[in-house]
Design a protein around this nucleic acid. Structure first.
Lengths: 198, 198
DNA sequence: TTACCTGCTTTACACTGTGTCAATTGACAC
DNA sequence: GTGTCAATTGACACAGTGTAAAGCAGGTAA
């Protein structure tokens, strides 16, 4: 295996093991079986390494394919449910790397840009969900598309996931179920049930 | 003015100015007009200083009194609205300190404990709101008290506020209005309007 | 064989920020 | 004067990132 790949694998493994905390360049080098300096021959800085690991992980985990259900969904409601399902199951698999990147973001400009780019993609998904709901006439009245997008994006943030699962002890299943419920209450119009009842 | 107070004031000012980023012990000392080492005569560590600054700030800003509206509210809905109003206006005033503490939390055990303690208080408020809603028969069916508390607590988290105001550019007014709306949709039963309509 | 890359190693060092230690000074109190 | 208290100065330890330079083993090409 190429050294570069060995480094990425080692970084990933360590970050998952330690939930993104306390992984130094030293540790990565040791885990990859090379000298600390050799890491710098492949990645210019810690941030570079973290960003590359995140990309590598998306590739290995088949990010594209896993979004198929979401992309295939025809209605807004289906789209919303498919995305929450995907996202709630994806986060725990990449959490270690995400957390390290998030910590680095506070300090490093490049890491911040990389993170914002990734989260921008999530935001685009939120917007597309909200627009689909709107097109179906199913977006709760009172929200503009922009506002609903921002809110949904915040609800789905990694920080929120962190708080609910790690601090509150929720399982992945519970997270998915309750976030789905929350976003339904917030964004999906109740009109039909209402019409039906009368 | 006592040196201790001068240090706290300086810390606070710097943290607000720089939004909680890049404030070193050196800077605090300079701003307070004393030597770096003198800061350690009053606060054992950076975390100590941050925690003390947070407490000082609560005191100066009259945290207790500002919660009066919330405490006085009789119904669950009023309680919810009063709290969102209070919280949405309070965060921007203490954000710098909160952010620094939050960053320190990643690293320092004591800072983590202090932060968790503060957020525990917020959680208690959320629980009391949810319980009040429940007692009024106004809690949306489907949530347990525990679940609704966890969710409301997450919605009101500083991280969420950060994302909505700083990243999405929301004003305080918008934050308060939309978070109120979101939590109403999520937790306040719609039954009465329904009954009324029929 | 000689010459030359390439990828990695080893050792050393610069830099930043936190926290500690010891010797010293200045002021005020009795 | 003597004691004490707060603060000062200067030096240093430590962790972690990143840089720099010299050397070495392997393969390749003339």
């Amino acid at each position: 295996m190429e050294t570069r790949t060995r480094i990425l694998e080692a970084t990933w493994r360590l970050l998952e093991e330690r939930r993104g905390r306390g992984v130094r360049m030293r540790d990565v080098a040791d885990a990859a079986g090379i000298s600390r300096q050799a890491v710098y021959l492949h990645f210019g800085s810690r941030s570079d390494l973290l960003v590359a690991t995140a990309r590598y992980l998306d590739e290995v985990r088949g990010l594209g394919e896993r979004l198929r259900g979401y992309r295939a969904a025809s209605s807004g409601v289906e789209r919303l449910e498919a995305y929450v399902e995907f996202w709630g199951n994806y986060i725990p698999e990449v959490y270690g790397v995400a957390r390290a990147l998030l910590a680095d973001r506070e300090v490093d400009e490049a890491a911040a840009a990389a993170w914002d780019d990734r989260m921008g993609a999530v935001r685009e998904s939120c917007r597309s969900i909200v627009e689909a709901l709107h097109d179906d006439g199913m977006l709760t009245s009172g929200w503009s598309i922009e506002e609903a997008t921002d809110l949904l994006w915040s609800i789905l943030s990694i920080r929120n996931w962190e708080q609910l699962t790690i601090e509150c002890g929720w399982t992945t299943e519970r997270y998915v179920a309750l976030i789905r419920e929350l976003s339904r209450h917030a964004f999906v119009r109740k009109a039909q049930e209402h019409d039906h009842a009368c």
